[in-house]
């Protein structure tokens, strides 16, 4: 679920930090900038792993800060496709089951990827697996807070960086809509339609 990603960046260190070791200041700046952020097509950044190379630092006219090009490796949450993960059910809705890992929330298991046959219980607002046995259907509820094992089927990255207004009239009409649906920068699509997947309690022997 975690990968080590090589990156490069130019880090600006303000003069009042010059008394400190450069490596320390840079490590801190990189974590300030990246930790708990999604980088487009890379994943959710966790923390700095190490600095592999520091290039020369420059001071530009009009700015007392130093600018250093850094090569570093960062720990990133980015599960590969088909990976098996365990999470907790955060909520259920018509769109499917929403799963959280605690540090990462944007996981959806769409209705067609649930164990079949499945139905959405409107009254309780939970998904139910209508498990067939010889004695008839047995309803297995997917309650909030339950631990769930799923397979990663797909991922979507959305570029959420701010963009300039495209055209005057479009921006006014879209503005309200955009505020309402603040899109997640990184979403995982899961599936539980295989034996062994779904709530952990469904597959324990006892």
């Amino acid at each position: 679920m975690f990968v080590l990603v090589e990156m490069t960046d130019t880090v600006r260190i303000p003069p009042w930090q010059f008394e400190r070791k450069l490596n320390e200041s840079i490590a801190e700046e990189l974590n300030k900038k990246l930790a708990n952020k999604v980088v487009y097509n890379v994943g959710l950044c966790i923390c700095l792993y190490d600095i592999t190379k520091l290039e020369d630092s420059y001071i530009f006219p009009g700015d007392g800060a130093s600018h250093t090009k850094v090569h570093f490796r960062y720990v990133v949450f980015h599960p590969f496709l088909d990976e098996i993960l365990i999470g907790e059910i955060k909520s259920c809705s018509q769109d499917g089951v929403h799963v959280s890992l605690g540090f990462f929330d944007d996981i959806v298991i769409p209705p067609e990827s649930l164990q079949q046959p499945a139905k959405f219980d409107e009254a309780e607002q939970v998904w139910v697996w209508e498990y067939e046995t010889e004695e008839g259907a047995h309803d297995l509820y997917m309650d909030i807070g339950e631990e769930i094992r799923f397979r990663v089927m797909d991922e979507t990255f959305v570029d959420t960086s701010p963009t300039g207004p495209t055209s005057a009239e479009a921006s006014t009409s879209n503005a309200t809509e955009e505020v309402q649906k603040k899109e997640a920068p990184y979403t995982l699509m899961g599936s539980i339609s295989e034996p062994g997947l779904g709530l952990l309690s469904w597959w324990t022997n006892n």
Binding site: F2, V5, T8, N41, C47, Y49, V75
Partner: peptide
């Protein structure tokens, strides 16, 4: 800032656990 190599290496949960515990 750019990633040079999107998937440089896989890390096991154990490695991340150790790194975070040390850092903490």
């Amino acid at each position: 800032m750019h990633g040079k190599d999107a998937n440089a290496a896989l890390l096991s949960n154990f490695e991340v656990f150790q790194l975070l515990t040390d850092l903490k």
